[in-house]
Simulated scan of single mutants.
Amino acid sequence: MKGIIVGAGIGGLTTAIALESQGIEYQIFEAAPELSVKGAGILIPPNAMAVLAQYNLVEALKPFAQPIQSMVIMNANGEVLSSSSTNYVYHGKSFQTHAIHRGELQKLLLNKLNNKQINLGHKCDNLNFNGNKVEVDFYNKANIRADFVIGADGLRSKVRNSLFSRHSAESSLRYSGQLCWRGVANIELDEKWRTQLTEIWGQGTRFGFVKIAPEQVYWYATQHQKSPLEQKSNFQSLISHFAHYPSPVQALIESTQPNQIIQDHIYDLAPLSSWSDSNVVLMGDAAHASTPNLGQGGAQAIEDAHLLAQTLSSAISQDQDAEAAFKIFEKARRKKVDNLVKTAWQIGQVTNLSNPVACYMRNTAVKHMSRFMIQKSTQQMYAWP
Rank of each mutant, 00 (worst) to 15 (best):
G7N: 12
L13F: 05
I17R: 08
A18H: 10
E20D: 04
I24L: 15
F29M: 07
A31K: 14
E34V: 14
E34S: 12
V37A: 15
V37S: 12
V37Y: 11
I44P: 01
A48K: 04
M49H: 05
Y55P: 05
N56F: 05
A60D: 13
P67K: 14
I68A: 07
I68N: 05
Q69A: 14
S70I: 06
M71C: 09
V72W: 02
I73E: 06
M74P: 04
E79Y: 03
V80W: 04
S82K: 08
S83M: 07
N87R: 11
Q96S: 11
Q96T: 12
E104I: 08
L105Y: 10
L108Y: 10
L109C: 04
L109E: 09
Q117W: 07
I118S: 08
N119P: 10
L120D: 04
D125H: 13
L127N: 08
F138H: 02
Y139Q: 08
N140C: 01
K141T: 05
R145G: 07
D153W: 04
G154D: 13
R156D: 05
K158A: 14
K158I: 03
R160T: 08
S162A: 13
L163S: 11
L163F: 06
S165T: 03
A169R: 12
A169L: 10
E170L: 09
S171T: 14
S171C: 12
L179G: 01
C180P: 01
A185C: 03
A185H: 00
K192A: 13
Q196W: 04
Q196H: 11
L197V: 14
I200S: 02
G202H: 04
T205V: 02
R206L: 02
F209P: 05
V210N: 05
V217K: 01
Y218S: 01
T222R: 00
E230S: 15
K232E: 01
I239A: 06
F242V: 00
S247E: 13
V249Y: 05
S255C: 03
Q257K: 15
N259W: 09
N259T: 14
I261P: 01
Q263F: 01
H265T: 01
H265K: 03
S273E: 10
S273T: 14
W275E: 03
S276V: 03
S278K: 15
S278E: 11
V281Y: 06
S290C: 10
P292S: 05
P292F: 00
N293K: 01
G297T: 09
A299R: 06
L308Y: 06
A309M: 07
S314H: 12
Q318Y: 13
A322W: 12
I328N: 14
F329H: 14
E330D: 14
K331S: 15
K335N: 11
K336F: 11
V337H: 02
D338C: 10
N339D: 15
K342P: 02
W345Q: 12
Q346N: 13
Q346T: 11
N352V: 02
S354M: 03
N355T: 06
P356V: 05
V357R: 11
C359D: 06
M361H: 06
R362I: 07
H368E: 03
S370P: 07
K376E: 13
S377I: 09
T378Q: 14
Q379E: 11
Q380M: 12
Y382R: 03
Y382W: 13
Y382S: 10
